[in-house]
Amino acid sequence: MNNERIQQIARAAGFVTVLLVAIMLAGCVNTPPTAVHQPMTARPPLKTDYVLNSGAIFQPSGGARPLFEDRRARYVGDTLVINISERTQAAKKSASTADRTQDIEMGVPTIVGLPGKSLQGATVAANSANAFSGKGASSADNNFTGTITVTVIEVLPNGNLLVSGEKQVAINQGNEFIRFSGIVNSTQISGANTVQSTQVADARIEYRANGYIDEAQVMGWLARFFLTFMPL
């Protein structure tokens, strides 16, 4: 084997090694996908270099706040505290029964002048029974409480606020992601700049995590392959 061939094999092996290392590193720092409204945060618009002064307390600039205005969120980039208090309970129970019974009895009377006298006096009886019983029950109980601060990412034409935010908590060798987004009616924001999650429309709440503990609970791709394509 010549030196050029050996160098080609070495380069190929090095490329495969780098690729495997990149895949392993990507698997260590991967971020769980999300279904909340994007983006997670938004910066306020840049202020102009100069502001037209009308000579009064009122300022026509969109970024100005009135003198006696509270600090409730109302502009893009403002923050809002969401008190997450979600509790859902659901239960379903069903039962059905069906019974069917059928009896048939037939007798041969006296036969006169007709063939088949051998069947005279014979009796035939048949009965059938069919029963069905089915029961089913399901229940769910979910509880999610916490607090997260989100950012106004868009102000809708009717004054409602589209908010979105994320909180990341690193614990040992895993990260936990708490995400929230939804549409807030500005009139429901309290004086402390807070709102209950039950008052948020189109709310999307997520609690996800990554790390070796969560990876251990996920079926591998090879097992999913055999589970999908093998009928047994």
Rank of each mutant, 00 (worst) to 15 (best):
R5N: 12
I6M: 09
I6K: 08
I6A: 09
Q7M: 03
Q7K: 01
Q8M: 10
A10E: 09
R11N: 08
A12V: 07
A12R: 06
A12Y: 03
A13G: 04
A13K: 10
A13H: 13
A13T: 11
G14A: 05
G14Q: 09
F15W: 05
F15M: 06
F15G: 09
F15S: 04
F15Q: 13
V16H: 06
T17L: 15
T17S: 14
V18F: 08
V18Y: 01
V18T: 10
V18C: 02
L19Y: 05
L19H: 06
L19E: 01
L20K: 11
L20H: 05
L20F: 09
V21E: 07
A22C: 07
I23C: 04
M24I: 14
L25K: 04
L25S: 10
L25T: 07
L25G: 09
A26D: 08
A26I: 03
G27Q: 07
G27T: 09
C28V: 09
C28L: 13
C28G: 05
C28Y: 05
C28K: 08
V29R: 01
V29I: 09
V29C: 01
V29L: 11
N30T: 12
T31H: 03
T31A: 00
P32M: 04
P32W: 00
P33Q: 00
P33K: 05
T34A: 07
T34M: 12
T34V: 06
A35R: 11
A35E: 13
V36W: 02
V36E: 11
H37C: 08
Q38M: 12
Q38N: 07
P39D: 04
P39Y: 06
P39L: 00
M40H: 01
T41E: 13
A42H: 06
R43Q: 15
R43F: 15
R43K: 11
P44A: 11
P44Y: 00
P44K: 01
P44F: 01
P44C: 10
P45G: 01
L46Y: 03
L46G: 04
T48M: 09
T48H: 10
D49K: 12
D49M: 10
Y50G: 08
Y50P: 02
Y50A: 15
V51T: 14
V51H: 15
L52P: 07
L52M: 14
N53R: 13
N53Q: 03
N53V: 06
N53A: 05
S54T: 14
G55D: 10
G55L: 10
G55T: 08
